[in-house]
Amino acid sequence: MSEHVKEINAAEYETEVLRSREPVVLDFYSTECPPCEALAPKFESVAEQYAGRARFVKIFRQGNRELATKLGVTGSPTLVFFKAGMEVGERMTGEEIKKTAIKAQLESMLH
């Protein structure tokens, strides 16, 4: 994983996501999930581009089921966007997540 994407577990969700000063993109991923494999390089590339302005965090769903259930996440990959501890914007899920769409949502969160 690149230096721009941090993997967390449910115990770190509060500090890493909800209390983050910068906007956060949280990626729920699974194994045996080709769309997750496809998203990973796009996610890292956007993370690199937005380094210092937004945080990119990923969490392994199988190891953090309760948090996924609490957030109502039932598909991988799912991107959830947070600003000042609140979920904002549209979630993105499945194979059709485009790099340009992630960037567009981040732009609207940053301005």
């Binding site: 699974s30 045996e32 999930c33 080709p34 769309p35 997750c36 769903r61 199988q62 996924a68 039932t74 598909g75 991988s76 499945g94 194979e95």
Partner: peptide, 9 residues
């Protein structure tokens, strides 16, 4: 739409 991806949920 993807059982392989999401079945385990």
């Amino acid at each position: 739409w993807c059982a392989t991806c999401d079945g385990a949920y």
